[in-house]
Write a protein that binds this DNA or RNA. Structure first.
Length: 514
RNA sequence: GCCGCGUUGGUCAAGGGGUUAAGACGCCUCCCUUUCACGGAGGAGUCACGGGUUCGAAUCCCGUACGUGGUACCA
């Protein structure tokens, strides 16, 4: 059996969303599992939709996810170029071969004429008429015009397209790796355009030709392509032979709260849909509505978690395992266990995956990103080793990387506001005196350590006959400002003797106002 | 409209003729902790509907409903 070769074929028109990344992932897992190659081919055949920067952005996303291809526009390969616009000259001969063999024809209908056809043929039963076997003989094409006329039109360089001539009453079926047998009636499929007036191929011609030329063995794509699969099957049959056709796998769609997950869903429902923020979109959104969506990266996701959650959205290995490293995914992945039904994306579960990965991974893995977060919020981190210890202390309470800020700022700066509600009822003169006296006790500690901090505190509480728990609560508000964080005495130990006393002094002044 | 693909708790899902129909997320209760988490113990909640086939159907078949994708010189 020949070497496994798969490809991800995005069109560079905008942000790479969850569905796209999952398609990449399944491609990647399948290739790695089978010792094959993963290729990225840029499908930029629609020149009207060219978006500068989109291609680079796609690779930025892949890099962040750790899913880099073996062959692509950026790292080359034996089948270069990998950008379809640069392969333009390759497609025409295949279109002409199809015409010669009677499987395709020239069509000269102008956009206006096509529009008119859709109006003329529109009925209640057929609201969206197609250019198909029922109407093609009433249109202007090389099937209805005489050979001389056709030659004349062609010689005059009149704009024209090439369309596939769908056969009548043929059952086109194939075995999909996910859906098993799928079949279509050829009469119901329209005569898709293969070569556009500008000389570029449409997706339909380009995939088939390039998959053949690039020796693709397994083709994964979203289920939105299933409807046009019969066109591709036929093209394979006419051009290269079905025996060379890759095995198809039509991946179930990832759904949003309302239908197929769209880029709009992000701003609409408040969760990320892009892997990394797509700057252009942000710029547009900012101009128009002053809102934008962060990508998973900006939102504080770890790539390990992102990959993990995407893998499990539509696939599982039949065991109860849910947390997988990329190596484990490669090891366990099987296309047969990919679901047939679409899965609704659940942001809550996505966050759970991230939480698990934050707990699982050593802090060193994401320390730099968290440090940047602190710096961006004007908190200086001078001691990386100490910072690491702090992150270790709070990691289990961080669901997103961005949570580290609230969970650890207080190690670097005193509280700005106090949670008044939590202490109001507990604060009185006795407590005031306790903390007043505590500062002098702490002042006397030369070896500032957990045992002494806690010991002095409890001894004084016993001596004053005040409930320790209540005092601890207040102490926490004094040091942190709110009811979060690790053990109070640990916090005191970390921030140091003078800072602890300073925060108590500060609180004594502020609390007297309650 | 037509064509394709789907349908197990709110969500992700295991299970593919006989199960008390797993598990996870989320939610609720309790324990731990006078914080927040983590951890632990419980709880509520499900086979879209109707017909078959069968001793027996969540599992097989047929309908219906619903969802979803396509129906472009977009991918």
């Amino acid at each position: 059996m020949s070497k496994v070769r798969v490809r991800f074929a995005p069109s560079p028109t905008g942000g790479l969303h969850i569905g796209g990344v999952r398609t990449v992932l399944y491609n990647y897992l399948f290739a790695k599992k089978n010792g094959g190659d993963f290729i990225v081919r840029i499908e930029d055949t629609d020149q009207t939709r060219f978006v500068p920067g989109a291609e680079q952005y796609i690779f930025d996303c892949l890099k962040w996810c750790g899913l880099m291809p073996n062959e692509s526009t950026i790292n080359g390969g034996p089948h270069a170029p990998y950008r379809q616009s640069e392969r333009k000259h390759l497609y025409k001969q295949y279109a002409e071969q199809l015409i010669k063999d009677g499987f395709a024809y020239y069509a000269f209908d102008t956009p206006n004429e096509l529009e008119q056809m859709r109006i003329d043929f529109k009925t209640v039963d057929n609201p969206l008429p197609q250019y198909d076997g029922k109407v093609r003989m009433q249109m202007r094409n090389s099937l209805t015009l005489s050979a001389d006329e056709v030659k004349k039109i062609l010689d005059e360089n009149t704009r024209h397209v090439v369309r596939i001539k769908m056969p009548a009453e043929e059952t086109i079926s194939f075995t999909d790796m996910i859906h098993d047998e799928v079949s279509f009636n050829s009469s119901l499929v329209d005569d898709k355009v293969l070569l556009k007036a500008d000389g570029m191929p449409t997706y339909h011609l380009a995939v088939v030709v390039d998959d053949f030329l690039m020796e693709i063995t397994h083709a994964f794509r979203g289920e939105e392509w299933l409807s046009s699969a019969p066109v591709h099957i036929l093209l394979w049959k006419y051009l290269f032979g079905l025996e060379h056709m890759p095995q198809w796998a039509h991946l179930p769609l990832i759904m949003g709260p309302s239908g197929k997950l769209s880029k709009r869903d992000g701003v609409k429902y408040g969760f990320p849909v892009f892997a990394i923020n797509w700057p252009q979109t942000t710029a547009e959104k900012n101009l128009k509505t002053n809102e934008f969506t962060d990508g998973f990266k900006e939102k504080g996701f770890l790539p390990e978690a992102f990959i993990n959650l995407l893998a499990l959205l539509g696939w599982n290995d039949g065991t109860e395992q849910e947390i997988y490293s990329i190596e484990e995914l490669i090891e366990n992945f099987s296309i047969e266990r990919v679901h047939t039904a679409g899965a609704k994306f659940d942001y809550e579960k996505a966050k759970w995956f991230n939480h698990e990965w934050i707990k699982k991974l050593p802090v060193s893995n994401y320390q730099q990103r968290v440090k940047e977060l602190f710096v961006s919020k004007n908190v200086k981190i001078n001691d990386d080793a100490h910072f690491k210890k702090i992150l270790d202390l709070v990691k289990e309470r961080c669901v997103l990387l961005t949570d580290f800020f609230d969970q650890a700022v207080f190690f670097y700066q005193p509280p700005i506001v106090y949670d008044e509600e939590s202490i109001k009822s507990k604060w009185d003169d006795a407590k005031h005196d306790f903390f007043k006296e505590l500062t002098s006790k702490y002042n006397g500690i030369s070896d500032w350590n957990l045992n002494l901090i806690e010991g002095e505190f409890k001894a004084l509480a016993t001596e004053k006959n005040i409930k320790i728990g209540e005092l601890q609560m207040i102490f926490r508000i004094i040091l942190v400002g709110s009811k979060i964080g690790p053990g109070v005495f640990v916090i005191a130990e970390y921030i140091g003797n003078t800072e602890t006393i300073s925060r108590i002094d500060n609180a004594l002044i502020n609390f007297s106002l309650f």
